[in-house]
Design a protein around this nucleic acid. Structure first.
Lengths: 208, 208
DNA sequence: AATGCAATTAAACAAATGTTTAAAACAAAA
DNA sequence: TTTTGTTTTAAACATTTGTTTAATTGCATT
């Protein structure tokens, strides 16, 4: 078992082909709706190779999920842990970073949140990430905001609002699309618009 | 086939038992992860009865989905079509009505949005609902807001923000829960708090 | 009580789906 | 070239899962 070195190569190894395919299929359809044969087809490889390289559908899924969560947390970690920036700067940073990431991977929010539903126990990794957030400089700044009486509500609301405003368009996109409320061409434009607006809105909410 | 009369009865008919069970299982796990046997078990009836009464898993699912969409649209239709209320009154109405509904059915948003993903073609019914929204008095008021230059961005943003702020806590709940960022006991309290706050926030965003 | 129709059941069936096997193809080393 | 170990393949396998069947039960009407 050599797991041939993962240099950025012209043609990817079979293992990589499978990972790439799994990433696409799992994130777009979810675990239950994904068939191992879908992954094999997407990767253009023989069905048996999936189990040969990854043992089981579930093990492969766990890899993709872990990778995804890491991608999401790594993206804001530097922002929320930076104790040299103001709260407003952090908010802009979070919004910018996430909208950028989500424009490239629009399926991520729905994927994570759907799979979280049926108690797919990655609790250990998850609570770790939770602690990571709660101990951040950003979390402290939010608490201080409340301690100083500058906001009259639970600081978790700020976090909910940032996430809601950033993430909802991507979660609701299929719905807004199919109802005809939002047109394909407009989507990217609207998101770019929101990149500047959301930080303004959040600040305005804080200073209400 | 008698479909015995649906009076609000002491013990529900088998058909109702199946519908109730299907509603619970489908909305909590999604179509792909739901097994017909799960529904039978939840309803405490024989497996074959599901097909006896509803022909197929898919037909049963379509009923639940249609019912759910109707529930969601019926809830705001009277609000957004009322041409005797101000925009602010409508915003409060939408927020109040939805948060109330979602407190009773927290799984609805994630359910609808997940199933919308893999192009589960209920396009006809959907585009109907879309038109229903676009022709509403509420939509007109939003457009007017832009026409008068009172907002400098696409009015769809207002709709996205309302939905995002209202719906996201329910979509993100599993995530916020498992990370330990949000505690079970706090959830309802926070939502109640948001019932007053969100309308204020939206107005403040409009008047920015 | 007897008849007929609807409701229910246990079992079987067929298709789908995750996993394994055994042989073939391939590549590197001797 | 032969040998050895790895990768790939087609096929089979076992389980899950949606659906159907055929028999039984229950109930209302005669």
């Amino acid at each position: 078992m050599d797991k041939t070195a993962n240099t950025t190569n012209a043609d990817p190894s079979t293992e990589e082909k499978i990972m790439d395919a799994a990433r696409i299929v799992f994130t777009s359809k979810g675990y239950a709706a994904t068939k191992v044969r879908d992954i094999a087809a997407q990767a253009n490889i023989n069905l048996a190779l999936v189990n040969y390289y990854f043992r089981s559908k579930e093990k492969l899924f766990d890899l993709i999920m872990a990778e995804t969560m890491k991608k999401l947390f790594d993206k804001i970690k530097p922002v929320i842990y930076n104790d040299a920036t103001t709260l407003n700067e952090k908010i802009s940073g979070i919004v910018d970073n996430y909208l950028e990431l989500l424009l490239e991977n629009p399926e991520l929010p729905l994927f994570v949140v759907s799979e979280m539903r049926s108690g797919s126990d990655m609790l250990p990794k998850m609570t770790g990430n939770g602690k990571l957030f709660l101990e951040s400089h950003f979390a402290k700044q939010l608490q201080q905001l409340q301690a100083e009486g500058k906001i009259k509500f639970h600081p978790i609301n700020i976090m909910m609002n940032i996430l809601g405003l950033v993430v909802f368009p991507f979660i609701g996109r299929p719905l807004l699309m199919k109802t005809g409320i939002l047109k394909e061409e407009d989507f990217k434009k609207i998101i770019e618009e929101r990149k500047k607006l959301i930080p303004l809105w959040i600040v305005s909410i804080i200073n209400l």
